[in-house]
Amino acid sequence: MNRTTGSRLTRRLGALAVVTMAIALAFGLVFSPPEVAQRDAVRLMYLHLPTIAVAYLGFFITMVGSIVYLRNGSVFWDLVAGAAAEIGVVFSVFLIVSGALWGKPTWGVYWQWDPRLTSTTVMFLMYLGYLALRRLDLPPDVRSRRAAILGIVSFGNVIIVRYSVQWWRGLHQGQTLGVDTQLDGLMLFSLFLSLVAFLLVAAWLLIHRFRVAWLEHQLTRIGFERALAERRGDLGGGRVGEEAR
């Protein structure tokens, strides 16, 4: 029973995600038309934009989880925050890779330090720092509290990245999806489909990643409890921890 982090929910979600992704790929790579100027390079949009959405969403969940954890010390939310951040970082790698490969044939370069790309790099680094912080050898509650603060502060980066194309001039184009969406019919549909597919995949990943985090947490707790038990056993009922303080 439960020899894995899978469940009926994740199996169904996973199946749905795979099917939706297959259809999304069909539309993105085959059925959707090339763009008038970019030609087939535009198909990278159906990869690039959804990975951005997942990254933003992941970091948003981290912020929410961090806030809830700080307010009531809920370990569940602390672990959710950590899991979501890791997924966000992974998808940040995807968005940078897909963006670079889209930039080379269209702009002419894989990279330029323009406001959006620069702020995206900073965002990526901050969350990498957040993940590193979670691995520091500190008392668990201290570590979680500091991580939570960083998790909230780091979301500022996401806001900056999101609005960088509006606030500053640069090479990167403006928001594709917004009040004034300028995407022809089948392209818009393909993008929407890819978005849904990636969100389903992200949900699946989050559930599994949270469950892994919970298992790690359980193991650590068992380790502590075991040590505490030994200590109590050694000293015939005395509680070293309390007396020493």
Partner: peptide, 30 residues
Amino acid sequence: FDLPDDGAWPGPSLDLTPAEYLDRPRRRWR
């Protein structure tokens, strides 16, 4: 084990730093 279901750390006191955690050699350099 005496593990609370909500994930809270074990131990009798509210101080969440179990003594054996403090005993452990800390890998500060890492």
